[in-house]
Amino acid sequence: MAPGVRNLWVWTLPTVALLGALWATPARSQPDAGASSAPGTLAGNIRITSKLAEQRMRFRLYPDIKPIAPPEEGQLREDEWANIVVYLKSTPALLEAQQSAPAEALEMVQLGETFIPHVLPVVKGSTVAFPNQDPIFHNVFSLSGTRSFDLGRYPKGESRSVDFDKSGVAPVFCHLHSDMSAVVLVLDNPYFAIPDAQGRYQIGNIPPGEYTVVAWHERSEEVEQRVTIRPGQSVELNITVPVEDDEDAGP
């Protein structure tokens, strides 16, 4: 090969490679609606204090004439993580993203003189049914500012429903059994999760952005942390409820 031709190849190949690289690099950094809005995931572990994990003692000074057996194993989650809700505070991006999400029809069952589940997170606009599955009367009511209602007394097999159109906490009680209580947590958006029996939670499909994550428990102050969700990425965030020193932490 003549030296001139060889020199041409020597210069041409790096030049093409460089041009190719220059062409390719800006292409990745160019705004791309599909890639930048790829939703992310928030996941992590919830730690709760041993004090918070204790189940309350049930006692009635004057027992019912016909008391009902408590829920059987498997009918009710007994771990306290079931009573924690991890959710994202609403931002314009979340509100926009949730518009396609339909309001859900949900249930809070009265079984074994217990509301199941004890904590029910719902999206604003949802309807919650309160079916009575006990062979005795119940009278579900709430006096909260979120939603005030009294469903009256109804027997086994009947159900009454309530629409929750305002976000907030709606403690629910039974007029007949003062030790029955539950909470409907009405949230502005569907980006929430209840941890599993190991305390692991995951919220998926989150539009990229900066958010405030809230861990809520009825007997604790809300725990808030900031988090940034990047497109297509999964962010790990562990939260302790309530906040405490590590050496005092329970399960």
């Binding site: 204090t49 004090k51 309350r56 003062s178 007997r219 604790s220 102050e221 725990v223 309530p242 906040v243 405490e244």
Partner: peptide, 18 residues
């Protein structure tokens, strides 16, 4: 007014814990 003294204690602990 009906009260549960344990819930008072819980609230106290929760507020001091934070």
């Amino acid at each position: 007014h009906q009260f549960d003294m344990r819930s008072w204690w819980d609230r106290l602990q929760a507020s001091s814990g934070n």
